[in-house]
Amino acid sequence: CETCDRYISGRVLEAGGKHYHPTCARCVRCHQMFTEGEEMYLTGSEVWHPICKQAAR
C-alpha cells in the first residue's frame, strides 16, 4: 500500500499505478475514503476526489 507500506490482500484501489488499501486511500482535501470504482485524481503522492481538486484551484 502506497500509504501504509503494508502488503495488500483482498480489495485494492489503484490510481496512477499506485495501490492502496480501501481504508488508506483518502482525499487530501476532505479526508474521506474512496469507494470502489470511484474516480481518483493523483498529483504526485496526493490522492484527490476530482471535485475537491477542482475546488482547490
Rank of each mutant, 00 (worst) to 15 (best):
L13S: 03
Q54K: 13
Y41I: 11
K53S: 10
H49N: 01
E46V: 04
A15L: 15
Q32L: 12
A56K: 11
C30Y: 00
P50Y: 07
C27D: 00
R6S: 07
V28I: 14
E14Y: 06
P50D: 12
H49E: 03
S45G: 13
R26E: 09
Q32K: 14
M40K: 14
A25H: 12
V28T: 14
C52A: 00
K18H: 03
E36H: 04
V47E: 01
E14H: 05
F34N: 06
G16K: 14
C52Y: 01
I51M: 10
I51T: 12
T43S: 12
H19V: 06
R26Y: 07
M40Y: 15
E38F: 00
Q32C: 08
H19N: 09
Y41S: 15
Y41K: 14
M33P: 12
A56H: 13
R26C: 10
E38D: 07
P50K: 08
L42K: 12
A25Q: 10
R26N: 06
H49F: 02
L13F: 09
C27K: 02
E38W: 01
P50R: 10
A15H: 13
W48N: 10
Q54F: 14
V12M: 11
L13E: 03
S45Y: 08
G44Q: 08
E46T: 09
T3W: 00
S9R: 08
Q54R: 07
Y7G: 08
C30K: 02
S45L: 07
S9W: 03
K18W: 00
T3G: 07
D5A: 08
H31A: 10
K53Q: 11
I51F: 07
A25R: 14
E36W: 03
P22T: 08
V47M: 10
C4P: 00
F34I: 06
L13N: 05
M33I: 13
S45V: 07
W48C: 12
Q54W: 05
G16R: 08
I51W: 09
Q32V: 10
L13K: 07
V28N: 14
R29W: 07
C24M: 01
E39K: 06
G16D: 06
D5V: 06
D5H: 14
I8G: 02
T3V: 04
L42T: 14
Q32P: 00
A25N: 14
E39Y: 03
Y20V: 03
Y7H: 15
Y20W: 08
H21Q: 00
G37D: 15
R11P: 12
A25V: 15
G10S: 03
E46R: 05
Q32M: 11
C52M: 01
Y41V: 13
I51A: 13
V12L: 08
H31G: 13
T23H: 09
G37I: 04
V12Y: 09
R6N: 06
C27F: 03
C27A: 02
D5Q: 13
T35F: 06
F34L: 11
L13A: 09
E39T: 06
G10K: 03
S9I: 07
V47P: 11
H19Q: 11
G17F: 00
L13H: 05
V28Y: 04
A55P: 11
R11Y: 04
H49R: 01
L13G: 06
M40E: 09
Y20C: 03
R57H: 08
P50C: 05
Y7R: 11
H19D: 04
Y41F: 05
G10W: 00
K53V: 10
A15W: 13
M33H: 15
R26P: 13
V12H: 12
T35R: 14
E14L: 06
P22D: 03
E38Q: 10
A55Y: 11
Y41A: 10
P22N: 05
G37R: 12
P22C: 01
L13M: 11
L42C: 10
C4M: 02
F34K: 03
G17R: 03
R11N: 13
R29D: 08
R57A: 15
G37L: 08
M33Y: 15
T35G: 11
K53M: 07
K18N: 04
C4T: 00
T23C: 06
T43W: 04
R29P: 00
F34G: 06
C1W: 01
R11F: 05
Y7M: 14
A55K: 10
A25S: 08
C30A: 01
V12I: 12
Y7L: 12
R6Q: 12
H19G: 02
I51G: 14
Q54P: 12
T23W: 09
M40P: 15
H19F: 10
C52Q: 01
T43P: 04
G10A: 02
K18G: 03
K18F: 02
H31E: 09
T43D: 09
G37T: 10
C4Y: 00
G44H: 07
K53H: 12
H21L: 01
D5N: 14
A56N: 13
R11H: 05
C30M: 01
G10D: 05
G44L: 05
K18T: 01
I51P: 05
E14V: 06
V12T: 13
A15V: 15
Y7F: 02
C30R: 02
K53P: 12
R29G: 10
W48M: 15
A56W: 04
M40G: 04
C1D: 14
A56G: 09
T35D: 07
A56T: 06
E14A: 06
T43L: 07
P50N: 04
C24Q: 08
M40A: 08
C52P: 01
C1Y: 01
S9D: 11
C52W: 01
S9H: 05
T43K: 10
E46Y: 04
K53R: 10
T35P: 04
A56C: 09
M33A: 10
P22V: 09
G37H: 13
C1L: 02
T23E: 08
H21V: 00
L42E: 15
E39N: 08
S45C: 09
F34M: 11
G16Q: 13
R29F: 05
Q32Y: 03
K53T: 04
E46W: 05
C24Y: 00
H49K: 04
C52R: 01
L42I: 10
R26W: 04
E39C: 05
